[in-house]
Amino acid sequence: MAAGGDHGSPDSYRSPLASRYASPEMCFVFSDRYKFRTWRQLWLWLAEAEQTLGLPITDEQIQEMKSNLENIDFKMAAEEEKRLRHDVMAHVHTFGHCCPKAAGIIHLGATSCYVGDNTDLIILRNALDLLLPKLARVISRLADFAKERASLPTLGFTHFQPAQLTTVGKRCCLWIQDLCMDLQNLKRVRDDLRFRGVKGTTGTQASFLQLFEGDDHKVEQLDKMVTEKAGFKRAFIITGQTYTRKVDIEVLSVLASLGASVHKICTDIRLLANLKEMEEPFEKQQIGSSAMPYKRNPMRSERCCSLARHLMTLVMDPLQTASVQWFERTLDDSANRRICLAEAFLTADTILNTLQNISEGLVVYPKVIERRIRQELPFMATENIIMAMVKAGGSRQDCHEKIRVLSQQAASVVKQEGGDNDLIERIQVDAYFSPIHSQLDHLLDPSSFTGRASQQVQRFLEEEVYPLLKPYESVMKVKAELCL
């Protein structure tokens, strides 16, 4: 049975990233139509530049190519590739079939990587351009969430054990800070992308030097003109047959890092959902379990974690691919890159769409948070109580021993009897502590235990987050809708 299948058929496997999760716009960027249309555009740009620099290419040939950029006979191309065992030459023939007058000058002087690699770089750039505003929107939604809850005390956790208090907004800023680093890295790697350009079979530009009869300047002009037509500021000066596969490492490393950030955020949300302090959106008709109707599973956060793990592992592909590119190139890269580049971007696209949807509907339960604080705060307040007693004339050592005994009794009630923490009640009825009984409410005010959390939130948002989001103001209103 021949390899390949009808990918629109229910009898043929289709990647869930495309069929179930990723956005239509990201799927289109990695589609065959987008790819092969870009090949034709690159052939047109090459012909236009070659004509401008004096090669015998007519206006009629150029116009014929322009008129057929979208006229792609995919069936013919597939048949040609089956016959020739070469995808680029299959599309040269297919393009030439609908451009008979231009057929002889299509791909003039070029090698397969002229269309293959340059198209990949265009796709990487455009895919990054799709991700950047999506990530900015996630940051914006979380920034709104953090600002609104900047002063809401909550129990902090280290080692997932109760620690000092923080605020809900401050905790959210930990998430935002990681995503801001990801946004900066995505922008950097996007701006650092260079075009492969017009380089020939081993990167020496020998074929173009021959076409222009040894004119170095025209060869350099050709490279520059096509690079500018493709919208790049610069091209690699040095290439082998391909652009260095280190570029793929750079791009997928940034995406993998984004995956790590999203995994951490969504894990926190899942843990908070278990504590009943916070939940992701839950639709009115949504079913959490087929057997347990009360369940409210954090399905979206779980999906993000599941896909983020996949995204983090994909960076190993370009690392290994770059390491086995012998001399000017081997074909070890080809099949692998067809999979890992598309999957990385479709996965990143999915987790950003999902995280935006989550961040637009996060639900906080202040009463649950308050109750958990009441359970733990008495123990945390013991040092403040000791200091207040010393100020009232008591002995630190005597007070410490009193607190120690009462704390152990209260802990026994919590752990052995399943009761509430009654340390404060014990202190309130103990005559030894009568000098500070009137101060206990103040000493137990949760806001006095959150330090500068709310001020940190305000400063972080104003100095770091809002300036970073400013270039994306025009796209901030787009909502994230999930079908599944």
Rank of each mutant, 00 (worst) to 15 (best):
L186E: 05
D87P: 01
V414C: 05
P446T: 06
E64N: 09
K170R: 14
I62E: 02
E277D: 04
Y432C: 09
K391N: 14
R374N: 06
P467L: 11
K35M: 13
T119L: 09
H217N: 13
K276T: 07
Y432W: 09
D11K: 09
F282D: 09
I351K: 03
L142Q: 04
A90K: 03
L341N: 13
Q456S: 08
R234S: 15
A480V: 14
L55N: 06
S67G: 11
N384S: 14
K199C: 08
E464I: 08
T244A: 13
P100T: 12
M312L: 12
Y243E: 07
R338E: 04
E64T: 11
Q409E: 10
L179W: 05
A431P: 14
Y21R: 00
M26K: 00
T313L: 10
S434D: 11
N71F: 13
I62L: 14
L130C: 12
V413C: 08
R459F: 10
W45N: 14
L255S: 06
P378C: 06
Q210S: 13
Q325F: 11
I139L: 14
I265T: 13
F145Y: 09
K367I: 05
E220C: 09
E473S: 15
F345R: 03
K284A: 10
G393L: 06
W43R: 00
D120E: 15
Q428T: 14
C266G: 10
D129R: 09
T242H: 05
I403L: 05
A308K: 02
S290T: 10
W175C: 00
I106C: 07
S112Q: 00
R14G: 15
C340K: 03
G259D: 00
L252I: 14
K224M: 10
I269T: 09
C304W: 03
K218D: 06
D191P: 01
G451T: 02
R426M: 09
F212N: 05
V88R: 00
V457C: 09
K402I: 08
T167R: 02
L128E: 07
G169N: 04
V262N: 05
P366S: 06
N68D: 11
Q177H: 13
I369R: 04
E383R: 02
T94Q: 12
V168N: 03
Q210M: 07
R459S: 13
N185D: 06
S15E: 11
S253F: 12
S261V: 05
T201F: 01
Q409V: 10
I427D: 01
P446C: 05
N274S: 13
S23C: 08
E213P: 14
G4C: 15
I385N: 04
K367V: 03
Q210C: 06
E79I: 11
D144K: 15
A335C: 14
F282W: 10
